[in-house]
């Protein structure tokens, strides 16, 4: 097949090769775009603001002298509206560097992201 009248085929083939090469180059250049896309997905997926908000809610709860009803509110509403399993416990005040602070442990799991923290407040 390639023996007869093949002058034009060089041009066609070379054109094809160049086109394929360009295509791959374009893909590589646009990897950065895909990075951006996955970044925004990751940002949406990771509940940064939820966890921060939960922490501040728990600290407010400690300020309000650990009302048990408030604890139930946070756990039940988290499960219902945010699909997140939340549990936390607050210990009695301890002496940390001369200041009285409560040890706090926080557990958060929304099925995709799990977050555990032990801190002092």
């Amino acid at each position: 097949m390639a023996r007869l009248n093949e002058e034009g085929q060089w041009i066609v083939l070379m054109g094809l090769l160049v086109a394929v090469a360009l295509f791959f180059l374009a893909l590589i250049v646009n990897q950065s775009a895909l990075v951006g896309q996955t970044t925004s997905e990751a940002v949406l997926e990771f509940p940064k603001n939820d966890i921060r908000d939960l922490r501040s809610a728990i600290f407010d709860y400690i300020d309000a002298e650990c009302n048990e009803e408030v604890e139930q509110d946070i756990i039940a509403i988290s499960l219902e509206r945010k699909n997140a399993v939340v549990s936390f416990s607050v210990g009695g005040p301890q002496d940390v560097q001369g200041h009285k602070m409560h040890p706090v442990s926080i557990h958060y799991n929304n099925g995709v992201t799990a977050y555990n923290e032990t801190t002092h407040y």
Binding site: D53, A64, K82
Partner: peptide
């Protein structure tokens, strides 16, 4: 949808409060 926890203090005198007098955490959506 964005949310934020709000804690309402226990306050018996707060009668126009729709959420009742006990201290509670509510979720603003």
């Amino acid at each position: 949808r964005v949310t934020r926890w709000v804690q309402l203090d226990e306050n018996a005198s707060r009668r126009d409060d729709p959420y009742g007098p006990r201290a509670r955490a509510v979720l603003v959506e």
